[in-house]
Structures are given as C-alpha cells and as structure tokens.
C-alpha cells in the first residue's frame, strides 16, 4: 500500500533521551493556533498546508473535537499520516480571516460530509433492513439501514444521525421540522 512506501518516522535516528522527553512534553502541551502565529495555505493539489512558528507542514487535516456540537470551534489541526499528530488547536474559526475560514470550511465539509435529510419520501422495512428514500440538501438519496442495531443514533430528542450499511451518514437536525406524516414513517426509529 502506498503509505507503506514511506519510511517510518524516526528509523535510523540516533537515540536521544532528552530529545524524546522534549517530544513527550510537546505532546502534553496544548498549542493554540491564532492568526498571529499560524498561516494556512492551499496546496497545488487542493489540500491545506500550515506554517506555524516557523515550522511548516506540507499537508494538514482539520478535525472537530465535538463534531456534533461545535462546528467551527474546538478544531484540532493535525498532520496527515498513519500516526497523525496534533499540531495545534484552533479555538474559534472566527479568529481567522475570511479566506482562512473558507479554506478550513472546505476541509471540514469534505471530512464531515453528512447530507441533511429534508424530506422523507418513504421508508420500507423488510426482513432486517429498512430502505430509505429521502431528499437531502445534496439531492435525492436512497440507502439501506440495518435494523435493530445502533444505526439510528439520537443526538438529542429531536436530532438524529442515520448510518447506512456502509456507514455513510445522514442527519435529521430537527425532527419537529418534518411533517407529521414524515415523522410517522420514522416512528420505528424514534
């Protein structure tokens, strides 16, 4: 596999306990990224790179610490490889300029791709699986959900997350915004 083609980090380096301790200390420390010390750049390919305090990272990923509650705050900026490490934390995206916000949002939208179900056309229940036909903010969608498991997760009383058999995600942010006929179709899961 491709990522195996890279040499593992640290192989062949001289061992240095003090250096290791410094690394450990670093792992325990929280570094906040602000517009003063960090600058995000788009790479040629469409990913993001980051320069912070003079260090530069050719490709980073953005992860939400509380993905269901905080969309634009508490973001962990991480390196991208098999042992992904945190570079720093963005406390609030609003601290950055519009261009950076836009870049971060693009990354988040892709990483947390979750169509929002706006209309439930039909849900059919057949022998252990339910077949959903819905309309989302990304267009009409049909998918299959395993029954009886934890495929439908209640994030709150009115908000649910649906996972299909391949773990594609769909969200209903507010059940009360659906019509009562649609809610009745969902009755089996609520």
């Amino acid at each position: 596999m491709a990522r195996g083609m890279r040499r593992p980090e640290g192989a062949g380096e001289e061992f240095d306990l003090a250096q290791m301790d410094r690394e450990m200390e670093e792992m325990l420390r929280t570094r906040y990224l602000t517009k003063e010390n960090a600058s995000f750049q788009r790479t040629g390919g469409g990913f993001l790179s980051l320069t912070v305090d003079g260090e530069s990272y050719p490709r980073i990923s953005v992860a939400r610490m509380f993905p269901f509650r905080e969309k634009e705050r508490y973001l962990s900026i991480r390196t991208v490889n098999e042992r992904s490490k945190e570079i720093g934390i963005v406390n609030d995206m609003a601290d950055f300029d519009e261009e950076t916000r836009k870049m971060l949002r693009e990354q988040l939208n892709l990483r947390y791709f979750t169509p929002i179900i706006t209309k439930v056309v039909s849900i059919r229940d057949e022998f252990g699986y339910s077949y959903w036909d819905v309309v989302t903010d990304h267009g009409a969608c049909r998918f299959t959900v395993r029954m009886g498991g934890n495929s439908v997760i209640h994030l709150s009383d009115t908000r649910i997350l649906v996972m299909d058999i391949d773990e594609n995600r769909f969200e209903i942010p507010n059940l009360e915004k659906l019509t009562s006929a649609e809610r009745k179709k969902l009755d089996l899961f609520i």
């Binding site: 699986y129 990304h138 267009g139 009409a140 969608c141 049909r142 998918f143 299959t144 299909d164 594609n168």
Partner: peptide, 13 residues
C-alpha cells in the same frame, strides 16, 4: 458537475 436532480443510490437498491 453535481446534479441535484439525479437520485443518488447507495447500497441495497
């Protein structure tokens, strides 16, 4: 380009 008119079909259909 994305086509919102097209039904997106996932596994099981």
């Amino acid at each position: 380009p994305p086509d919102k008119g097209r039904v997106h079909i996932l596994k099981g259909y």
